[in-house]
Design a protein around this nucleic acid. Structure first.
Lengths: 140, 140
DNA sequence: TATTGTTATACTCTATAACTATA
DNA sequence: TATAGTTATAGAGTATAACAATA
């Protein structure tokens, strides 16, 4: 069995990740939801709330703010007039692309300052972390 | 030069980390500040605000909420009666210890479900990530 | 009756501007 | 005058409870 790793570094990493992308002046919740809509395409409001792990009323308000800022659009679901489908606008997609470029560039610049061994260690860990996250999703 | 790693996994990792510790029913900002006070000891309100990367008024309010909940205590700085020193109470230290134990246990359980190679990759990346975060702090 | 979404209300978290007390 | 902190105000982000519309 391995020694328990010191996870405090992950707190600092989270703070760092939040600061690397600033385009569109989005808060973390807005950025995450918008990114999901770009990645997964238009979807029901409830589906989006579940995916982001927030309540349905919380998502109603988040979508309202995004809509007010012109980043998403609400449409009525075909076949069920209760349903709301949320989709990204061109402006929204643009903001996501800019933020992703900002973050990739900033992260790359930080990586470049490390030893090659550290760079490799981090690159190798990302797929493993993806499987860790997936393991969590598999057992809610 | 390395290929740009896919950083989207770090978004999911952040969401995961927030959910692993629930003791004391603290929000993220309260948990981070309290943890810093345990790790670094009593300190000036301004110092705490700078360390956490939030404004002085923001920290005044955060400390007020923590004080209301009995997790920290305000004292007057010796030698400068304008200054406020914030320190953790026994209850506050207890909550931090419980949260850390919760998170370590949950993370360990998730790790245990991965291949040994993935476990090693993650353990090896943590010190490298610590240096990445330090590189950021070195150039504000 | 059950599902989808919104509205109402409250709390955390954060910022900027204006203020108070001390140095 | 400059520094340390607080108060006032506003907005994002989140929750639960109550409601409306549709299925």
């Amino acid at each position: 069995m391995q020694v328990a790793p010191d996870l405090r570094v992950l707190d600092e990493l989270m703070r760092l990740m939040r600061q690397l992308a600033t385009a569109g002046d989005l808060g973390p919740a807005a950025a995450m939801a918008l990114t999901r809509l770009v990645r997964e395409g238009p979807q029901r409001l409830t589906e989006l709330a579940t995916g982001e792990g927030i309540s349905q009323p919380g998502m109603t308000q988040l979508v309202s703010r995004l809509e007010r800022d012109g980043l998403v659009r609400r449409t009525t679901a075909t076949g069920d007039r209760r349903g709301v489908v949320v989709e990204v606008t061109a402006a929204g997609a643009d903001v996501v692309a800019q933020r992703r470029a900002q973050r990739d560039r900033a992260f790359h610049d930080l990586l470049a300052r490390l030893d090659p061994a550290d760079q490799t260690a981090i690159a190798d860990a990302l797929p493993a972390l993806a499987r860790l996250v997936a393991a969590r999703a598999a057992t809610p």
